[in-house]
Design a protein around this nucleic acid. Structure first.
Lengths: 214, 214
DNA sequence: TTGACAGCCCTGTGATCACAAAACAATGAT
DNA sequence: ATCATTGTTTTGTGATCACAGGGCTGTCAA
């Protein structure tokens, strides 16, 4: 098992959040979660407060912690920052990525193609995140990495809707462009490919909002 | 007073951290702080964990929380991200800032000049932060703002050295350039001014490291 | 004199309890 | 019927206690 209970609770909540298992607007109550996981409310409290501090949940002082409801406006704001941060991480990562890292990225894209073929959105998204993460990690900037992960967590609650409502054919593949750029040693092109990928994803997510308005 | 104790503890710790009242590498111990502020260890624990989650303190699982020691490498990484994020916030803020906001910025620069004249580094830095904050706030992007504040907190422990060791004549003033750009309605120029300001600050801080090596 | 080991103390963690404020529901008046 | 108000329940917060793991020190052997 892990070191301490609070860390376990945090991981479970984070995982559930990224998988979109919590409804936006849902109130996460201490004693409920504690009872469900068989612990005292104490470690759950810590885990929730940590997620609030990271911006993944929102909680006013004396009230229950809630899963944030993402508006289209907030989604745009989120992606404005993601574009800047992940663009930088991609460019810097492209400069420093070694052969082993490139191999990992190739493996990821192959698995993504396979997942796409078998219409497995969840698998696709998982390897997608792995692809981005390993590239960004190569940038060697932990400050940057922490912020990016924080942003991913904030977008998490939207992904459950992707699983259900999205046509898989919408998933385009800018990762191949990125790989080509990496093999040619062109960091600027790698950055551009990543930014294109993010923009494409953003438009898909924004599309979900327009459907919801109807 | 405030709503709950944990929030008060958090504000006190944050303030002390930004003012550089804690030594880098210093271990912050629950019962010590609790006794000093006259509370139980519980709210202090929450406040410390929150600061760890925000990256302002570092704490391994079962060990005491410590004030991070900033290396030159980490400083460079920090400023790489600050440059990108605050540049974006400045440009967007410049686009949306209204007349009242511009008035506040003018007041800030006047106070900064006054502080400089009376050799008050602390006062200068305070109004400096206010200047940046009001400009960034005008960007209307809370996601961005949260990340920037998180980065400021990470650089906090360095500022106490500025108070003591730095020649005030080193403080240059790129804020006037920024104001000019704002009055002319030129967001790109405003961004450039802010970036110049950050780079200048960065070189001052890096200078402190070279002294320390001797 | 120096190295290792054992003991104690210090420190973070988790559980239980007591409390206050907020959310909810039932009851009453208009 | 609708809204305000009051009483009850729920829910987060803080304190105290019990526990376990790490670190430090003193002692003993080589």
């Amino acid at each position: 098992m892990a070191e301490n209970l609070q860390e376990q609770m945090y991981q479970r909540l984070r995982e559930g959040l990224l998988a979109g298992r919590f409804e936006p607007g849902e109130a996460l109550k201490l004693r409920d979660l504690a009872a469900r996981w068989g612990t005292s409310p104490m470690p759950v409290r810590g885990a929730l407060q940590r997620l609030v501090a990271e911006g993944a949940l929102e909680g006013e002082p004396q009230r229950s912690v809630r899963v944030p409801v993402i508006t289209a406006e907030r989604l745009i704001q989120l992606y404005q920052v993601r574009l800047s941060l992940e663009g930088m991480a991609a460019e810097e990562g492209a400069r420093r990525l070694d052969a082993a890292g490139r191999e990992q990225l190739h493996a990821c894209t192959e698995r993504m193609a396979a997942a796409l073929a078998r219409r497995d959105a969840q698998g696709y998204l998982y390897d997608n995140s792995q692809f981005h993460l390993t590239l960004y990690r190569a940038s060697g900037n932990p400050v940057l990495l922490r912020l990016i992960e924080s942003l991913w967590l904030q977008a998490g609650p939207l992904f459950n809707r992707l699983f259900r409502e999205t046509d898989l054919s919408l998933f385009n593949d800018f990762h191949q462009h990125c790989l080509d750029a990496l093999d040619q040693g062109d960091p600027a092109a790698a950055r551009q490919a990543i930014e294109q990928d993010l923009l494409h994803f953003r438009s898909i997510l924004l599309g979900l909002f327009e459907e919801a308005v109807e």
